[in-house]
Amino acid sequence: ELSQEQQALLNYIVDAYNKHRIPPDQAKKLLQEQFNAEENFQLLTEMATSHVQVLVEFTKNIPGFQSLDHEDQIALLKGSAVEAMFLRSAQVFTRKLPQGHTEVLEDRIRKSGISEEFITPMFNFYKSIGELQMLQEEHALLTAITILTPDRPYVRDQQAVEGLQETMLEVLRKFCKLQHPQEAQHFARLLGRLTELRTLNHHHAEMLTSWRMS
């Protein structure tokens, strides 16, 4: 069972996750029809920017994060922003969107000048996330766990970060046991997505350079 304290932590994280999201009017822009590659590039850049802002607001609510060394806070956010962005955007592709919206989004990304070699791993990731039928608590916790990754570049007090991550992992482990009693591997599969995210992180860096050049 989740202890009272763990349950309170989970509720708090999920509230923060739901409260800090991309403003609906901006998200709606993604679904309008008539953009060309240049405008798609601009739109996706704006979306990425506001996603980073949303991520920081969410992260401020992770208990203990703000008591970390200030530069470590920046190193953690800088190191995890891309992964958190893919994790969150995966949710968009797996939530039951009204008819056709997913296709419009996918089409927009395919037609924004990003080369195929980066698009395929991205949509494979979205598919593998979709197969897990993740609950919002799992999305919120996995995002927090991704951000609290101790071995990001430039993080000095790795032990402090590890302590916070351990707490989150324990809550997620218990939550998975409670919510997916018949699926013993569910927790392990969720953590497996984190490794997949790291390869996406690497792809993303290359994708940006090639995108800028084209």
């Binding site: 704006e46 920017t49 980073v52 802002q53 607001e57 401020k60 200030h70 806070q73 920046i74 956010l77």
Partner: peptide, 21 residues
């Protein structure tokens, strides 16, 4: 606009909590 700031600048600004301006 924020979108042509570097990633670290956006993070520092947001952490400082003055994203409104």
């Amino acid at each position: 606009p924020a979108s042509n700031l570097g990633l670290e600048d956006i993070i520092r600004k947001a952490l400082m909590g003055n994203m409104e301006d």
